[in-house]
């Protein structure tokens, strides 16, 4: 298995001003030395609660933020070392589909123009060829040809998300970042889009970075999952194994908090107390220790490193 993309020790820190008049500056470690790999044709799921850094990770992968440390390697080459044409190629190979298809499509553009825009700006393509490509993509995402000449308001949420997917595919990318692609959609439509994404993956050999808060959807879509908490990866591994037997206390709590799919599966596990602390002043040692039921004195002082545990990576002193 080869990784199409690999992040090594990737960090993104933001400077934050405290108080009205500046004063002491804090640093938010939105993403703190994380490493992951997206295998060719696979889906890497990222889960975590607000403030865990999953969106910043997506932005780093998309090249919308520059890392404060670490590197991203794409097809074996470091992004930092790429020249301008190389970076342009990278941007073409990595595309995104966002959460809200009502916000991500320009209401004044026709569908054909929306889908063709990346093609027109990135490549010298003649008009008939552009049109041909647009119709081909509409067919691929399951929309009728006549959609090309309509405007976004004429489509429902699910259809709009199909249009957003078609736009992401127009440059034949290798990696697509899916940031909560079905959260804004109705329940009966979600399955349509998830099925479409899966079939596109097998047909086109795409790799996905899938970010969502719906754990069952992530487990369904992903081959590997990374779990993040306050900018750090606390556990990563094969999707099903991780979902069915989480190891890190946070992963356990997170999956225990997931809603059951049948009333008979109601769990009586105690609910994790407290809230995610402010990323401006994360707890010392292991960031999770104030909420962790198994925390010891060591957890407050020493941050655990990710270590291999039964074919998985877990960052917890319990597993040393």
């Amino acid at each position: 298995m080869t990784a199409v993309m690999e992040a090594k020790g990737l960090s993104k820190h933001f400077q934050a001003r405290r108080g009205l008049f500046g004063g002491s500056r804090g640093v938010v470690r939105a993403v703190d030395e994380i490493s992951f790999a997206i295998e060719t044709g696979h889906t890497l799921g990222v889960v975590g609660e607000s403030g865990c850094g999953k969106t910043t990770t997506a932005k780093l992968v998309l090249g919308l933020e520059t890392p404060s440390g670490g590197s991203i390697q794409f097809e074996g080459r470091d992004l930092e070392t790429l020249d301008t044409p190389g970076r342009r190629r990278y941007r073409k190979s990595v595309q995104a589909v966002f959460q809200d298809p009502y916000a991500s499509l320009n209401p004044r553009m026709r569908i054909s123009a929306i889908i063709a825009e990346p093609l027109v700006t990135n490549e010298k393509t003649v008009a008939p060829e552009v049109r041909h490509r647009v119709l081909e993509l509409l067919d691929l995402v399951g929309l009728p040809e006549r959609s090309a000449d309509l405007f976004p308001h004429e489509f429902s949420g699910g259809q709009r998300q199909r249009i957003a997917i078609a736009r992401a595919l127009v440059l034949s990318p290798q990696v697509i970042v899916l940031d909560e692609p079905v959260s804004a959609l109705d329940v009966s439509i979600r399955a349509q889009i998830l099925n479409l994404l899966r079939s596109l993956q097998t047909r086109l050999g795409l790799s996905y970075l899938f970010i969502a808060h719906d754990l069952a959807a992530v487990a369904h879509m992903s081959h590997e999952i990374v779990v993040m908490y306050l900018g750090k990866i606390v556990e990563s591994g094969e999707a099903r194994a991780l979902a069915l037997s989480p190891k890190h206390p946070y992963t356990k709590a997170l999956f225990a908090a997931a809603l059951p799919s049948h009333p008979d599966e109601r769990s009586d596990e105690p609910v994790l107390q407290g809230e995610v602390p402010s990323p401006l002043s994360p707890p010392s040692g292991c960031h999770f220790h104030p909420r962790c039921p198994h925390a010891t004195a060591r957890c407050a002082q020493e941050a655990p490193r990710l270590r291999p545990v039964e074919g998985r990576q877990v960052a917890c002193h319990l597993f040393e």
Binding site: Q192, L194, R198, D214, L215
Partner: peptide, 30 residues
């Protein structure tokens, strides 16, 4: 949940991904 009567309920229940079982395709409602 165990025995939905209406095809809509049946389809809704089939369309949610589940952690406990591996399925290639979810039942989508067209």
């Amino acid at each position: 949940f165990s025995q939905p009567l209406h095809p809509y309920t049946k389809a809704l229940l089939g369309s949610i991904p589940r952690m406990t079982e591996e399925r290639e395709q979810l039942t989508a409602i067209d």
